[in-house]
């Protein structure tokens, strides 16, 4: 039940933002559409609805966002440097790293974060292992690779999603 209520709220807020008007007929149509979708699709999208009411998760999410954007900007300057350099200093390869995260949502966000941060691109997730394409391999020791790529996000994502 909690899943359905939270999905209803998410869809309804999205509807209000998209239409950006508070007339009566818009709101009625929004409520009907959100109800229908949340009844039909409740098992597909939102799982563990109880997690939405724990404020600590939102706090850690707000802490995580500036860190994430810092790494995104660094990644862009990194790519610009490699692309504009006449000799293109790249040393690419696919490495295998291990994550300790368990839930699917946390793994998906970890993969997206890895893709948008300097020099790395997630290729596949198999169980606990992530295959990561790294544009400039600095070490060939799996333990150190895990330290460099995964550790900076893992703690925050565990606090947010698990």
């Amino acid at each position: 039940m909690a899943n359905r209520i939270f999905q209803f709220l998410i869809i309804f807020i999205l509807w209000l933002l998209l239409t950006w008007s508070l007339t009566v007929q818009e709101i009625i149509v929004g409520v009907v559409v959100a109800l229908l979708l949340s009844i039909l699709l409740s098992d597909v999208f939102v799982r563990g609805g109880g997690k939405f009411v724990q404020p600590a998760r939102y706090f850690w999410f707000l802490v995580y966002l500036p860190l994430f954007f810092y790494y995104v900007f660094r990644a862009n300057f990194d790519v610009a440097y490699r692309v504009l350099h006449p000799e293109m200093p790249i040393r690419p390869g696919i490495v295998k790293v291990r994550t300790t995260l368990k839930s699917d949502m946390a793994k998906a966000f970890l993969a997206n974060s890895i893709t948008l941060t300097p020099g790395t691109l997630t290729v596949d997730i198999v169980g606990d292992h992530l295959y990561v394409h790294w544009i400039n391999i600095v070490t060939e020791d799996p333990q150190e690779e895990t330290e460099v790529i995964v550790r900076k996000f893992e703690g925050y994502l565990r606090r947010i999603f698990e």
């Binding site: 862009n76 692309v83 790249i90 690419p92 020099g119 544009i135």
Partner: peptide
């Protein structure tokens, strides 16, 4: 793979 890195980011 390198092109995807540059383009996506």
């Amino acid at each position: 793979y390198n092109r995807l890195q540059g383009a996506t980011k």
